[in-house]
C-alpha cells in the first residue's frame, strides 16, 4: 500500500511537469496543426540556462538567499526560451505554414536535433549537477510515504502557472484572439486579429512554460544535460494526445494521468510480468499509451477528432 501511495506521489510530481510541457505542444498544435518536435529541447535550454545563471550567481553573490537565486535563474531562463521560441517560429515554421504536412514536421525534427547539437557544443556532453536550492529532505505526511519540499513546490508552481494560462486564454482579449486564430486563421484575420503576432505569441508562451518546466525537471532529478529534453518532450506530447490535442484542460489531465501510469507501472511491472520486465522498461509506457490512444480513441480523453485531418 505504501509503495502504491509513494508511486502516486511521484507520478503526480512528474505528471505536473509533463502537463506544463504538454501545454506548449497542445497550444501550437491547436493553432497551426504542427507538432513542434523541438519543444522538448526548449525545456532543456531552459534548464541549462537556469543552471548557468545559478553558477554565475553563486560566483558573484554567494550569500544571496537560495530562493532568490532560483527565482532569478527562472527569470533569466524564461526570456531566453521565449526568444528561442520566437526565432524558431519566425525563421523556420512561418515559411512552411502552407506547405504540405511533412515539410514542417521534418523541419521540426531537424530543429530538435540542431538545438541538441548546439547545446552539446555549449554545455558539453556531461551530466551537470543542478544545485538543490530547495530542501530535498523528505517529509512523511503519511508514514512510509515520502515527499520532498522540492516536489511540493513543483506541484504548487505548475498548478499556479496553469491557472494563470487558463485565465489568460479564457478571460482576456488576447486569449480570445488566440482561440479565434485556432478556430480559423483567415476569419480571425478578417476580424482584425493579427494572426502572425498571435501565432508567434503562442510559441513564446509555450516556450516560457517550457522554461519553468525545465527548471522543475532539473531540480527534481538534480541533473541537467543536453539531451534531457527529448524523452520528456515525447512524453509530454503523448500526454497532450492522451488528453485530446488542442485542448488545454486535456493537456493538463493527460500530463497527470501519464505521470501516474508511468510511476505506478514502473513500480509494479516487475511483479506483473513475473520478473521478466523491470523498471528499465519505464519509458515504454508512454509509447504504448500513445499507440493505444491513437488507435482506440484518437480524440483523446477530452478532445475532438483530429487525427484524420490530412
Amino acid at each position: 500500500m505504501e509503495t502504491l501511495l509513494q508511486q502516486i506521489v511521484n507520478g503526480l510530481v512528474v505528471g505536473s511537469v509533463y502537463a506544463l510541457v504538454a501545454l506548449g505542444y497542445t497550444m501550437v498544435y491547436g493553432i497551426l496543426g504542427l507538432i513542434n518536435f523541438a519543444h522538448g529541447e526548449v525545456v532543456m535550454v531552459g534548464a541549462l540556462t537556469a543552471l548557468q545563471t545559478l553558477l554565475l550567481l553563486m560566483g558573484i553573490a554567494p550569500d544571496m538567499a537560495p530562493l532568490l537565486k532560483l527565482a532569478i535563474a527562472v527569470l533569466v531562463a524564461m526570456p531566453v526560451c521565449m526568444i528561442l521560441g520566437f526565432l524558431m517560429e519566425r525563421l523556420a515554421y512561418r515559411k512552411l505554414r502552407n506547405a504540405p504536412r511533412l515539410a514542417p514536421l521534418i523541419t521540426a525534427i531537424g530543429m530538435s536535433f540542431l538545438l541538441q547539437t548546439l547545446a552539446m557544443i555549449i554545455w558539453g556532453r556531461n551530466y551537470h549537477t543542478f544545485p538543490q536550492l530547495i530542501s530535498t529532505d523528505p517529509m512523511q505526511p503519511i508514514p512510509g510515504v515520502f515527499i520532498t519540499p522540492v516536489q511540493v513546490t513543483i506541484v504548487i508552481v505548475s498548478a499556479l502557472v496553469m491557472a494563470g494560462l487558463i485565465l489568460l486564454v479564457t478571460k482576456t482579449r488576447l486569449g480570445r484572439a488566440m482561440r479565434a486564430t485556432a478556430e480559423n486563421h483567415r476569419v480571425a484575420a478578417l476580424m482584425g486579429v493579427d494572426t502572425n503576432a498571435i501565432i508567434a505569441l503562442t510559441f513564446v508562451i509555450g516556450a516560457a512554460l517550457a522554461a519553468v518546466a525545465g527548471v522543475m525537471f532539473a531540480s527534481n532529478y538534480g541533473i541537467a544535460h543536453y539531451a534531457m529534453g527529448f524523452m520528456p518532450g515525447l512524453k509530454a506530447f503523448t500526454a497532450a494526445v492522451l488528453g485530446g490535442i488542442g485542448n488545454l484542460g486535456g493537456a493538463m489531465l493527460g500530463g497527470i494521468v501519464l505521470g501516474l501510469v508511468e510511476a505506478v507501472g514502473a513500480g509494479y511491472i516487475e511483479t506483473m510480468t513475473f520478473g521478466f520486465l523491470n523498471s528499465s522498461y519505464q519509458d515504454i509506457f508512454a509509447f504504448v499509451i500513445l499507440g493505444i490512444v491513437l488507435i482506440f480513441r484518437p480524440t483523446g480523453l477530452l478532445g475532438e477528432r483530429v487525427s484524420d485531418r490530412a
Binding site: 515525447l234 491513437l294 487525427s307 484524420d308
Partner: peptide, 19 residues
Amino acid sequence: VLRLRGDYLAIVTLGFGEI
C-alpha cells in the same frame, strides 16, 4: 497505425523504434 496520417504516424513509428 493504418488509420493514422502524417505527423501522428511519425510519432508512433518513432515510439516503435524506441521500444
